[in-house]
């Protein structure tokens, strides 16, 4: 991660009246990248989803400041930004863990016992589905089908699809991410 540069304000030219606070966030290039996306879409309100995608890629999740910033830049009311951000499963309003495990619960995976994989991971690492461990190491999520039905049951570990999973294999795959006392 780049060193925080306390002196440089994030670009606020798009929302000159009241730029968002950046407290607790490194004032790095990420807002510049976000602004570039916003500019590419000519600040059109229609680009809300695209911009939220970019923002989440940049920051990992969407906090209130980011939502406010995006709303002002695209000239969309805050409640609509919030409504859109919470409608879609992909957007997260809370920080995610350092690592992620997504268990596919699609039909093919269901038929092949994906629920047992989910239960095993939950139990082994004390993490609720769609939650994060208290130490912030692991986020567990479920997917509605990742399209890897031919390899069911499947799970995604830090972005890599793994097929023909078993409860034990899933737990083992996560083990190296976790502190040893678990």
């Amino acid at each position: 991660m780049t060193a925080p540069d306390a002196h440089r304000e994030p670009t606020t030219t798009l929302a000159p009246t009241a730029g968002p606070t950046t407290a607790g966030r490194p004032a790095d290039n990420r807002f510049k990248i976000l602004d570039a996306t916003i500019k590419r879409h000519r600040r059109q309100p229609d680009a809300l989803l695209e911009v939220l995608h970019t923002a989440q890629e940049l920051f990992g999740y969407l906090d209130r400041e980011t939502l406010t910033y995006v709303g002002r830049a695209l000239r969309v009311p805050p409640s609509r930004v919030y409504g859109v951000a919470t409608f879609y499963n992909f957007f997260s309003l809370k920080p995610k863990g350092a690592h992620s495990c997504v268990v596919c619960l699609g039909t093919a995976c269901y038929v092949k016992g994906a629920d047992r994989i989910l239960a095993a991971v939950q139990q082994a690492y004390h993490v609720p589905p769609h939650g994060t461990t208290p130490d912030g190491q692991l986020s567990l999520a479920t997917a509605r089908c990742i399209g890897a039905c031919g390899l069911a049951p499947a799970a995604v570990f830090d972005g890599d699809i793994a097929g023909r999973m078993t409860p034990a294999a899933a737990v083992a795959r996560i083990a190296p991410w976790m502190p040893h006392d678990q």
Binding site: D46, L48, L49, E50, H53, V76, V84, F87, N89, F91
Partner: peptide
């Protein structure tokens, strides 16, 4: 790019989504 909503396969919902809405 969709953002994880099955209903967006319905054509009027898909249109709303391309327009940046719920």
């Amino acid at each position: 790019i969709g953002a994880g909503a099955f209903v967006c396969g319905e054509e009027t919902a898909l249109i709303a989504s391309i327009e940046g809405k719920r």
